[in-house]
Design a protein around this nucleic acid. Structure first.
Lengths: 202, 202
DNA sequence: ACAACTATACCGACTAGTTGGTATGTAATC
DNA sequence: GATTACATACCAACTAGTCGGTATAGTTGT
């Protein structure tokens, strides 16, 4: 007697995205089949193609959901309340380092993983990844703008500095995957912090 | 009358790796089929499985070939002859920035792309990517060791600093792919150079 | 010098299983 | 009673990998 615990009506879409987030982080997008996705979500193919016109469309939805998820997480964090903008930036770095305590597939970035496979093959997914990455450095950019307004550094823009946060994040993840060790990802933030302290004279 | 220009005997293996390098950079490993690989190399499936026991084996060969290729390229470059180790490091950064002048798929890193898809699904490919990444920062590490010996910086090791070169490289590539623009990759090296100048007081 | 043998390099048809996607049906909800 | 939210059965195309065969190069005995 197999207990057919069905996914409650209305939850299929969310479950599919959840399953996709996990599977894509572990295996990548191309290597994850629609059938696997459905099995992991506890849903049939009918449900899949009811909610998404294609696998590609799920990819876009996945990345956009990721953008919203991470955005909400960073926006809700108490580090935003600190008075000094540079303190907020350093607290943000602390937060990112904390995230690296989880197992590797748990801190890997859905947008970063996805864009590697789709930047040429799927414009819609690439565009979604771009939105995600941009939203990522928009978070720090505001704090950096404030910090630079109070303490200008010649030749440095908030924009290009904010990009370095994503460079450290994404580069750190790849190193961690290649060396099978989260340490280099952590060190990437150590160096970024030191760089900022040198720039701002802290 | 179709001119069946056959690949000369003995070249099939090299052609397959060449084709793989190109296709993987454009589409990723999982999304590239063995049939596509053979077609691009101008070779049949018999040749493929004569030289490689599996698609995974080709992946390993591809990444190892990549390691040898890039290693030889950096080793042969004139920047190695400069007297001052830090000058060598800066010249290396210049070289990397120059490479970013090519179209995106041409400067993307085979190891970085591959490890994203295979770090959990294929231990042999992940191991090959690890070799590649390590060989990548071994190049700069020697120069950094010399530079640090002459001008020690408290709390900084050549190893962890060398890793930052790969972080900048890999992170820059992902940003470039996501934003569809090589500029952030170049800026990653600008910031890395400024960081080094601050650390070493140049 | 040449035939006989062996090993390597490659060809191309085939297969069993998987792929993304569809067509049609049915139960719940508005 | 119409729309939404699924389930099930199905399909053509493609997947990695196999297998019997052939063409070429190297080796060896005479």
């Amino acid at each position: 007697m197999t207990t057919v615990t069905r996914v409650p009506r209305g939850e299929a879409r969310a479950r599919l995205i959840e399953a996709a987030r996990s599977l894509v982080r572990h295996r990548g997008f191309a290597a994850t089949s629609v059938d696997e996705l459905c099995a992991a979500a506890g849903v049939t193919k009918g449900a899949f193609f009811h909610h998404f016109p294609s696998k590609e469309a799920l990819g876009v939805a996945l990345v956009d959901d990721w953008t919203a998820m991470t955005g909400a997480m960073f926006a809700a964090h108490p580090y935003n309340t600190k008075a000094d903008p540079l303190d907020r930036v350093f607290a943000y770095i602390d937060l990112r380092r904390e995230l690296l305590g989880q197992p590797l597939p748990e801190f890997s970035c859905v947008a970063g993983t996805t864009v590697q496979e789709s930047y040429e093959t799927s414009p819609p997914i690439r565009a979604a990844a771009e939105r995600s990455i941009r939203s990522g450095f928009d978070h720090v950019r505001r704090h950096l703008e404030e910090a630079l307004a109070a303490h200008p550094v010649p030749g440095i823009t908030a924009d290009s500095l904010a990009q370095q946060f994503q460079v450290a994040t994404q580069g750190g993840i790849i190193l961690a995957k290649a060396l099978n060790d989260p340490a280099p990802a952590r060190e990437a933030f150590d160096h970024l912090e030191r760089y900022l302290r040198l720039l701002f004279g802290r």
